[in-house]
Design a protein around this nucleic acid. Sequence first.
DNA 1: CGGCTCCTTGAGGTTAATCAATCCTGGTGG
DNA 2: CCACCAGGATTGATTAACCTCAAGGAGCCG
Lengths: 220, 220
Amino acid sequence: MTVDDLRRAPLLAGLTDEQLDALAAIAQPVLLPGAATIFRQGDPAEAFYLLAEGSVKVFKAFRDGRTATIRHVRTGETFGESVLFNDSYPAGAQTMEESRLYRLRSDDFRRLMLAEPELGLRIIAAMAHLLVMLNQRVEELLLPVPARLARFLLDLCSEQGSSTQCHLAIAKQELAARLGTVPETLSRTLNRFVRGGLIAVDGNTFEVLNRPALERLAQQ
Amino acid sequence: MTVDDLRRAPLLAGLTDEQLDALAAIAQPVLLPGAATIFRQGDPAEAFYLLAEGSVKVFKAFRDGRTATIRHVRTGETFGESVLFNDSYPAGAQTMEESRLYRLRSDDFRRLMLAEPELGLRIIAAMAHLLVMLNQRVEELLLPVPARLARFLLDLCSEQGSSTQCHLAIAKQELAARLGTVPETLSRTLNRFVRGGLIAVDGNTFEVLNRPALERLAQQ
DNA sequence: CGGCTCCTTGAGGTTAATCAATCCTGGTGG
DNA sequence: CCACCAGGATTGATTAACCTCAAGGAGCCG
């Protein structure tokens, strides 16, 4: 049911039932198969989306056809919100499996914001925060590949509650995309880490052997 | 006088005299010589600034000591505003000549925002817009140097009201920093444009000879 | 045991930084 | 009026990072 789906979105948490009803009135349900393009980088911005079920990735496309995954959207999260400030999408989005989402047209949403200032304030603040995050991700792409990989590994470990071990849930080629590089370079870089005694690799499980060196590398 | 200085800031335009007085009460005047560091990338974020007189540049620092100028701040503009969302500065700032500025401590400012919701709404919206701009600038650094230069030239021309001619007011090495590259590469790239018949150069004046090709280059 | 997909390894090419040398050009003092 | 000097601007040669293309493995399922 629409309102229940909306209530699960962190961006909308804490809204009153009336506000959610108003939102539900402008939310268009969409059902997409896997690997479907939702919007492309540079497309005129018309709407943003709430992911109710399934999974979606947001990515930047480069000149050379390479892509860097910016984030994996989780159930209940919104994406493409920057349409409210921008007139074209700053990144592309694609489903990774069959997904159910809601489309929120930006002019409908803007109209709603005028009627409900509280909603607007909440959205704008959340969005500013998102933009800061996005900015950090894009900035990371300016670092050399080894630094990006080191960051990722350290983050993954702390995310999984360990300071030395972590398990990679996605394929290495997905990781390469997430780091904005290609599988070959990822493979070579991992190899270099192993030869340098920084980490040990067993399949998709990693062990950090020399944390200080890895942290130094992650710096720059 | 403080209030007059504040009134000139686009971010604050349209505020009532009372609101400006309240702001003036928390604005600390600062006088700095040229080439002075205002804050460094990564410093804990405590305040943002309004430039009343002089000139300031905001820049990203790279691992290798290179820097990319993100923007040249003009009189009446604010910079470092992202402290309101971030707990450290995402870029560094430095005066380019003797400058007079006002320091606005972020917790003072936040307190003021709570008391004056209208002020908060205005600031947040303006800031979200700024963040989008910043994001675009950082993204540009992912493009190859010729694309960045092409963009810059086209922007400069349209900024100066001409579709074919423009004049560069800063030194070429400053332009190189603005493009996130080094003077040598800028020189070679300009040369390539000239040899390719894209532009003509006379000192610091440029003429666009083949706009479509330049626009194509700017794409990616 | 093919055939598949994913991963790795090697060779080569492109982009752009670095280092070093040279060339202007405008300002200064003789 | 001219020689000289300093900073900026150019040019050449070298180097580093990392992508591309191409060719092997390694595991896995029918």
